[in-house]
Design a protein around this nucleic acid. Structure first.
Length: 799
RNA sequence: GCCGGGGUGGCGAAACUGGGAAACGCACGGGACUUAAAAUCCCGCGACCGCAAGGUUUUAAGGGUUCAAUUCCCUUCUCCGGCACCA
């Protein structure tokens, strides 16, 4: 074991930072920097994921402090939610008591890591001072029709006994407990996030410093597809069957129309036909198949002819109308035009049922291929053929022209489909924000008055985990007089989804005690946007989409003047053990606290940053942690051997290190920054450092191992915190080398290297290279064809 | 299928804008110190051939562009993530 007493040191400096308010944020003339990590659910204990997430944020914040920024680096707790209720049921405790205990123990663990939070700004979403503003925001949305109640089919988790938002359903399971989600018809509260769909999609372009994959995931989720709704008339009838397509350029190749089995028109149009019986039988069979089975890709496409015909509005062609299970009622209009030549599904179906095909898009390179000969549909771009007066146009061009032409003839309408649905926020649970709505027999649905906020969550409620909303059974909560007519009324007893709480907490940190608004507009204007946000990829859609939505809503209220809350986003990778995610069930959890006991927080921080780049997965390694600890000890020993004056080569090495480390810190390349620190320390061991060199080393170590650096800094006799010191500057004059090593290649293979003056001319370098003994051996008598010179780097002789 | 990101030593990884592949560390091997061990310090460490000097070869596979390719282009394989009979 080493010699440095981390336990004592870490305690001492944590107290020092707290007592002296070193990391307190207050507006000033300095440039501001808002660094935020996703706040945790207070489970009571931190895990390695937290340690990694918060270490990255902490190092960045501390780096910004030393760079002279005015940093806001707050922390709080996403404290409403189900685990508190489950714990209440299990331990017969109360959610509020359980939660505040958890917050206390979690906070003390966070403090042990030495994170530079401004604890004066701590917020907890289960405090009435906080959730009051959830209610306020809800009412503002309600006034604008953005919060509304509707009856609809909803996702229901039978195990959590509550409804879920679409975003909370992962692979047909509950995101929290993985139980299979059921469908139920219920009347619930929704937020109209779809009102913002265009902006949510378009503003993704502003997010240049977000990981591409997060942007892609959000874009997928919003799911915009542009196309045309086309009206097919039923032959010998005035019935219209609308179909939706994104490939209107293939309309002249439609050879049949298909409706989903559940289509409401089906039963009506087949009435009396000789095919009626068979069609009904088919519909029956489809109804029994589960959605999961039906949407499996390799399942054979089945269908029946209805006996009816449709008329293609663009050419009056009469084509058969089919019913098939590969058409889904949930998407588009529940009916499609089938173009077997240019859609693979239609192609397979047409082959199976011997339906006709017609090519309308010709590939540029291939000749007149007959449809019967093709093995698959051609879905790419090409030139229009068999398409009336659109022949010869590129299909991309035709797409626009045909759509416009159809609109003028009223046979089609340009339309956009979205995947995004409104956000269901009602939860049949106790531990959440009460929805501030009252139901009055006379007045109907009535908003609670602003001055009556908060609607407090009653302390006592019968929590059983079943039988609907617990608040429903708390008479003194439910019974209320109507805010409008003062008559008898009942409160809404569902609570809000907890993602509501976290959709705006970053704004609250700007003014956590503000009593007039969710946040003080001036303070928020100073601190926002969040310059750097750091958190897990699991929030790529849920939390990040909701927060973007709320920010846009605040903009519409005139409370903020930007579109996006988070300028830069970093999604840190997971911490693995033996190639698997750490989890209780796998029994492979490494407890941060025990590691702090053994090696100290600084070593843990150092290891977390060194073992992998922040975005990638990190494989836990006990020996790696020990290595980090050894490195700190190695630095510690430097102090015992300080010299009067460093050699020049060490000074040069230092300036190189400053340049590289600074650049790496800027780009979150902590692993290579640490590698450079190690190289720098190795150089010190070759030559011995003076005070100045050692001081600079400490400053550059300080964001990573803050307690350790503070201690050595004070041992050097400094009276102020190292975080008040200035980041070292690289002197460009001192990193210019007098001599350089140039690699000499013959035919691209390294054959020698020569040391030359940095200022050497190209001709001279050429000469010196050709004169080199081992190079000569390789050239022998061969004529030199060409010599390529990369100044200061390399010479390649081509023979 | 579409979209996004990967594949480099025994392991974690590095490589600026096309210019010495494997920095830094872990593990391993050797040496110094020690009665001994630990700790520490120093050295070695992709593979193959060679006593050595040295040579050959190597960034998932194949091809291309180039004086020069982990880096650019094409094809293929494969892994991870999102969306998906989405018309």
């Amino acid at each position: 074991m080493g010699i440095y007493n981390f336990k004592e040191i870490e305690n001492k400096w944590q107290e020092y930072w707290q007592d002296n308010g070193i990391f307190k944020a207050a507006p000033s003339d300095k440039p501001k920097f808002y660094c935020l990590e996703m706040f945790p659910y207070p489970s009571g204990k931190i895990h390695m994921g937290h340690v990694r997430n918060y270490t990255i944020g902490d190092v960045h914040s501390r780096y910004k402090w030393i760079q002279g920024y005015n940093v806001l680096h707050p922390m709080g707790f996403d404290a409403f939610g189900q685990p508190a209720e489950n714990a209440a049921i299990k331990n017969k405790s109360k959610p509020d008591i359980w939660t505040s205990k958890c917050i206390e123990s979690m906070k003390s663990e966070l403090k042990k890591m030495g994170f530079s939070y401004d604890w004066d700004r701590e917020v907890s979403t289960c405090d009435a001072d906080y959730y009051k503003w959830n209610q306020w925001i809800f009412l503002k949305m309600f006034e604008r029709g953005l919060a509304y109640k509707k009856a609809s089919g909803v996702n229901w988790c039978p195990s959590c006994q509550t409804t879920l938002a679409n975003e909370e359903v992962i692979d047909e399971g509950c995101w929290r407990c993985h139980a299979k989600v059921e469908q139920k018809d219920l009347e619930q509260w929704y937020l109209k996030i779809t009102e913002y769909k265009e902006r949510l999609l378009e503003d993704l372009q502003q997010l240049k410093d977000w990981p591409k994959r997060v942007v892609a995931m959000q874009s997928n989720w919003i799911g915009k597809s542009q196309g045309v709704e086309i009206y097919f008339r039923l032959k010998d009838s005035d019935k219209i069957i609308p179909v939706f397509t994104t490939r209107v350029d293939t309309i002249f190749g439609a050879t049949y129309v298909v409706m989903a089995p559940e289509h409401p028109l089906v039963k009506e149009i087949i009435k009396g036909k000789k095919e009626e019986k068979e069609v009904l039988k088919f519909i029956e069979r489809c109804a029994q198949e589960s959605k999961a089975v039906r949407s499996k890709e390799d399942v054979k496409k089945e269908g029946v002819f209805t006996g009816c015909y449709c008329i293609n509005p663009v050419n009056e062609e009469v084509i058969p109308l089919w019913i098939a299970d590969y058409v889904l009622m949930e998407y588009g209009t529940g009916a499609i035009m089938a173009v077997p030549t240019h859609d693979q599904r239609d192609f397979l179906f047409a082959k199976e049922h011997r339906l006709s095909m017609r090519v309308v898009i010709k590939k540029l390179e291939t000749s007149n291929q007959k449809p019967e000969e093709t093995q698959e549909a051609y879905e790419g771009d090409g030139v229009q053929v068999n398409s009336g007066h659109f022949d010869g146009l590129s299909n991309q061009e035709a797409k626009i022209k045909i759509a416009e032409w159809m609109e003028t003839k009223s046979i089609g309408k340009i339309q956009t489909h979205w995947r995004l649905r409104d956000w269901l926020i009602s939860r049949q649970r106790y531990w959440g924000t009460p929805i501030p709505i009252v139901y009055c027999r006379k007045c109907g649905v009535v908003a609670v008055a602003y001055e009556d906020l908060p609607v407090r969550l009653p302390q006592e409620a019968p929590i059983t985990g079943e039988g609907g909303s617990p608040l429903n059974k708390v008479e003194e909560f439910v019974e209320v007089s109507c805010p409008k007519c003062k008559g008898q009324a009942r409160r809404e007893t569902d609570t809000m989804a907890t993602f509501f709480d976290s959709s705006w907490y970053f704004l609250r940190f700007a003014s956590p005690k503000c009593t007039s608004n969710p946040f003080d507009i001036k303070e928020a204007k100073y601190w926002m946007q969040v310059d750097q946000y750091i958190g897990g990829i699991e929030h790529a859609i849920l939390h990040l989409l909701y927060s973007r939505f709320f920010t846009k809503f605040f903009k519409d209220l005139g409370m903020v003047d930007y579109d996006e809350p988070f300028k830069r986003l970093l999604t840190q990778g997971m911490v693995l053990k033996d190639g698997e995610v750490m989890s209780k069930s796998k029994g492979n959890i490494v407890d941060p606290d025990s590691m702090i006991q053994k090696y100290g927080a600084d070593s843990l921080r150092l290891f977390m940053l060194f073992a992998a780049p922040p975005e990638t997965e990190l494989e836990w390694d006990d020996r790696g942690l020990e290595g980090a600890f050894k490195f700190l000890n190695r630095v510690w020993r430097v102090q015992e051997n300080l010299k009067e004056k460093s050699e020049e080569r060490l000074i040069r090495a230092m300036h190189k290190a400053i340049k590289k480390i600074t650049a790496d810190f800027e780009e979150f390349k902590f692993n290579t920054a640490i590698a450079s620190l190690m190289e720098f320390v190795n150089a010190i061991y070759q030559s011995q450092a003076d005070r100045e060199v050692f001081s600079n080393l400490l400053i550059m170590v300080s964001p990573i191992a803050p307690h350790f650096a503070e201690e050595l800094w004070s041992l050097l006799g400094n009276k102020e915190s190292i975080f008040k010191a200035a980041w070292p500057k690289c002197d460009p004059a001192l990193i210019v080398e007098e001599t350089v090593t140039v690699v000499v290649q013959v035919n691209g293979k390294v054959r020698s290297s020569i040391v030359v003056d940095a200022g050497i001319s190209e001709d001279e370098l050429k000469e010196r290279s050709l004169a080199d003994e081992s190079v000569k051996k390789w050239i022998k008598d061969s004529p030199v064809k060409k010599v390529i010179v990369v100044p200061g780097k390399l010479v390649n002789i081509v023979i």
